[in-house]
Computed example of a mutant assay.
Amino acid sequence: MSEKPVTEMSFEEAMRELEQVVGQLERGDVPLEQSIQLYERGAQLKARCEEKLKEAEEKVAAITLDANGAPTGTTPVEGQ
């Protein structure tokens, strides 16, 4: 498990660690207290991944295309 704060992770970092957490929990070979900590970390990682995906979707949605499908610019995304 990484010591890096979840809020500073990229999508890829959070997803990679989330996969490790899920693997450990599925194996079931960790003590109960560690399982609880893993579950909490997993919940934070999942939320981070969802947040980063939402940001990416908003950026893609903000791009406007011309008749040929070429980007003509961007429109501001709410809150930016």
Rank of each mutant, 00 (worst) to 15 (best):
S2R: 09
S2M: 12
K4E: 14
K4W: 00
K4Q: 10
V6H: 02
T7M: 10
E8C: 00
E8W: 01
E8S: 09
S10M: 00
S10G: 13
S10A: 11
S10V: 01
F11G: 02
E12H: 04
E12A: 08
E13W: 15
A14V: 06
M15E: 13
E17L: 15
E17K: 10
E17T: 15
E17Q: 15
L18I: 00
E19H: 07
Q20K: 03
Q20R: 09
V22H: 06
V22L: 15
G23L: 08
Q24C: 12
Q24H: 12
L25S: 01
L25G: 01
E26K: 15
G28P: 02
G28D: 01
G28M: 12
D29R: 12
V30A: 09
L32Y: 13
E33R: 15
Q34P: 06
S35C: 11
I36W: 04
I36L: 13
Q37S: 15
Q37A: 11
Y39F: 13
E40G: 01
R41D: 05
G42F: 13
G42N: 07
Q44R: 14
Q44N: 08
Q44H: 12
Q44D: 11
L45P: 13
A47P: 04
R48Y: 04
C49S: 09
C49F: 02
C49Q: 01
L53N: 08
E57Y: 14
K59L: 07
A61T: 04
A61Y: 06
I63T: 04
T64M: 05
T64D: 13
L65P: 00
N68F: 05
N68H: 06
A70Q: 07
G73T: 11
T75R: 15
T75F: 13
T75H: 12
P76R: 03
V77Q: 01
E78L: 07
G79T: 05
Q80C: 04
Q80Y: 06
